[in-house]
């Protein structure tokens, strides 16, 4: 057995000290050590996007980052983004458009969308689809998700106008 390694990081604005096995990936660390089960596992080989979280401000695949690599980092998960209110309007748009069914992809999807909306003020449907092309949803067929993103874009642009 390999000895656990001590790490210190900020998760959703909370200081976290923990001992983790080097082989533990960030998504498992968040789920199993911190109980942040909103970060989901869909494939654990970096394809499905269900484990998408924010690491130092950028979205990453939680299953493709080792927890030890996040030592000293700032991590934000769906729980944190929900509680801060940062994506409240996006969540409302998803709700109104029924842009989720089983909801398993949704935390990752929302975090991925929010990155796009921070980078681009008026993305086309095609750009939205491309940006989300690493996030698998088996339920919706994506159309409703694209609609919900567009609705959020319109609302945010209207609010800023």
């Amino acid at each position: 057995m390999i000895a656990p390694v001590s790490i210190t990081l900020m998760v959703n604005d909370e200081h976290v000290n923990a001992h983790v096995s080097p082989r533990t990936h960030l998504a498992d660390f968040l789920r199993d050590h911190l109980g942040l089960t909103g970060t989901h596992l869909g494939c654990e080989h970096g394809v499905c996007g269900a484990c998408t979280v924010r690491l130092d401000g950028d979205i990453v695949r939680g299953c493709l980052v080792l927890a030890v690599q996040a030592d000293g980092a700032v991590v934000e998960t769906i729980e944190g983004l929900s509680d801060s209110g940062e994506i409240a309007d996006l969540q409302e748009a998803f709700r109104n458009r029924n842009a989720l069914q089983c909801g398993y992809c949704t935390p990752g999807m929302l975090i991925a969308v929010q990155e796009l909306l921070r980078q681009q003020s008026n993305p086309s449907r095609e750009t939205i689809r491309e940006h989300l092309s690493g996030n698998y949803c088996r339920c919706t067929g994506y159309h409703a998700i694209v609609d919900a993103v567009e609705a959020t874009v319109r609302a945010r642009n209207g609010a800023n106008a």
Binding site: G46, G49, D58, V60, R61, L64, A112, S133, N135
Partner: peptide
């Protein structure tokens, strides 16, 4: 190359 979350890392 891949997707945004991969390119970020």
């Amino acid at each position: 190359v891949a997707h945004p979350a991969i390119r970020n890392r």
